[in-house]
Design a protein around this nucleic acid. Structure first.
Lengths: 340, 340
DNA sequence: TTCAAAATTCAAAACGTTTTGGAAAAAAAT
DNA sequence: ATTTTTTTCCAAAACGTTTTGAATTTTGAA
């Protein structure tokens, strides 16, 4: 493995110039830059990352803690994120170090990884409302990027979707179809995103003078979707439309509608937010699911870049980006049924 | 963050001595060692890993490639390994870098990660027979440890169970109970472990003069276990006992036995190999499952240590360790039924 | 031609550790 | 009292890069 010194010796140049030539500094003659590039290539030069890191004070490694559910079941979103993040980080010479959260206290795994004293920053995901990890990391001056936001006006870099907007768009679509009684099958409210969706839902409904009687916040399982929908549909003035936290929940809701002897979309409209995970594809529903859509995969590259930009000194307030959400109308939504 | 230099200045010692005192070298007076330790502690000294790595030529990072199934579903074993490995590696100041295998060619992801030129070695798992990754890594002189073995007498460090022994023990247990027609519901033969189990099964059966008519090698899904068992049980001289590749397969087999109107263990004995994954616990079966048992979690620490010992120069032939397997008799096995 | 300005190059320091080859001090042997 | 051995310590080099501050060369204008 060739080093800068060897290249400089080969060319009769100084190490400085070789370094600058390869790193694209302006103060090196084009002629020499070409020559340096050529011999570097020829000698199979590859910068020693460790040496780079020693002198720059950066480790080139960022951490992420994987939260495992009590049953050790793997989160489907995890591999989606892992795939995207490692690719995005690699393109900026950064590696992802993983650790598993088995502790009850949410900050302990971060503390542990931090003690190893090797990380430049963290990527956080799945924020809960007023996330304790935020306080901890900020107190310790550790840079991080959050996928989502744990509070309305955060002071840290973040990337995510506008969840209030998700609800607003969903309500708008359904209200325009004439629906009045719209249900929200939401995630547990401790999840920041669920809290935002709820606020957005309430705001959008109240703006139209619609009541928000049908809201449930619980774990996003198919079975829960099924249960809640069944329950709501057996009331005296049942909802005519469901907004679901995820496509998985929508699957449960649709099953409940079916089991009630009702049809989608004729009797009941169903829509969901779609992270575009490969396993549960909205297009494969019958009828195909109307969704607000923001592929999780699309978040990976921005998350990586935001964190690395932040490490390069870019201030947090310039690094709070929202992902676009698409509304895709498919077969599972239709005009509200005539009132009897 | 204090450095060695600062500590040496504080104590009027040389950097050398401080370094040696902290690293437990013998040639430093006990008195000074104590003093150095104290001030290091007091000044909050933590060795700069990057600097250590630059001078030692090691990066302190090992890689692992996660193979994702086509449906992107998460492998249950993955989190089990991730948890154990990160903990074991951390205790020897090593980090785990993950990448996801999405390619069709099994060596490409290794090549890619190698190009980043930052890893000390790899941890491989799930070997297939004559695994191409072995050839590739050995050709490139990259150290690795394999969880399992891809060939009978490997030249690389490895840790795993003796899969022939798994079959041997299972057959022995069942044969001693009087079973003659024993089925093996095995994984696909390209998996090295499945191939070994098959050989072991054949050897053990033939040694007892028993025929090996009932063998199926296919993906270890519950549905496959169900299918194959149902199929075998409808033959003219059906098996009286099943050896299953995993507890998941056993679940399917038991269901099939039940659906055939037969009882476990009165009519049919069922046993399996148990990796002791938290999700599918053999003890929760009804009746509780007789198993050969070797917790996957127990493999993590040895795997980490074997790789790191190898990196420290220990030769491969001293680093081929087999994990003990336990045979645990529970309710799912019993004496062979009397022949009609 | 001459001189200032711009462009290009370089030597050396720095990052924080480990390791090498001695040197000084203390202890033991002569 | 001198030499030898052992113990304890140290200065300096090394790892491979980036960066600083200055030196050299080239260019352009006077």
């Amino acid at each position: 493995m060739a080093t800068l010194k060897e290249i400089s010796a080969e060319l009769g140049l100084s190490v400085t110039t070789v370094s600058r030539a390869l790193n694209g500094f302006p103060e090196v003659k084009e002629h020499t830059r070409v020559k340096v590039r050529e011999t570097a290539e020829r000698m199979g030069y590859r910068p020693n990352r460790i040496a780079q890191r020693l002198v720059t004070g950066r480790s080139g490694m960022v951490g992420m803690i994987v939260k495992i559910k009590p049953d050790m079941s793997a989160d489907q979103t995890f591999f989606e994120m892992l795939t995207g993040l490692t690719a995005a980080l690699a393109s900026r010479d950064t590696d992802l170090v993983l650790a598993v959260d088995q502790d009850s206290d949410p900050v302990t795994p971060y503390k542990k990884l931090l003690e190893r004293d090797i990380l430049d920053g963290f990527i956080l995901n799945a924020p809960i409302v007023d996330d304790p990890r935020v306080t901890f990391l900020q107190d310790h001056g550790v840079p991080f990027v959050m996928h989502g936001q744990d509070r309305p006006d955060p002071t840290y870099p973040s990337f995510g979707i506008d969840n209030a907007q998700v609800s607003a768009q969903s309500v708008k679509l359904l209200a325009n179809l004439g629906h009045k009684r719209i249900a929200l099958i939401n995630d547990e409210l401790r999840h920041a995103y669920a809290s935002e969706r709820r606020s957005g839902f309430h705001a959008a409904m109240e703006q139209r003078g619609l009541s928000t009687d049908y809201v449930q916040n619980s774990a996003t399982l198919e079975s829960h979707g099924y249960m809640h929908a069944l329950d709501m549909l057996s009331g005296s003035a049942p909802p005519t439309a469901f907004i679901c936290a995820s496509t998985v929940v929508a699957a449960g809701v649709m099953k409940a509608v079916h089991d009630r002897g009702l049809r989608v979309p004729d009797d009941i409209s169903v829509m969901a937010h779609d992270d575009a995970l490969p396993l549960t594809r909205a297009i494969n529903f019958d009828p195909a699911l109307t969704v607000t859509r923001a592929p999780l995969r699309d978040a990976c590259s921005p998350l990586a870049n935001i964190l690395l930009d932040h490490l390069d000194g870019k201030p947090a307030r310039e690094l709070q980006v929202f992902q676009d959400i698409e509304t895709i109308v498919r077969g599972s939504t239709g005009p509200a049924p005539k009132e009897v």
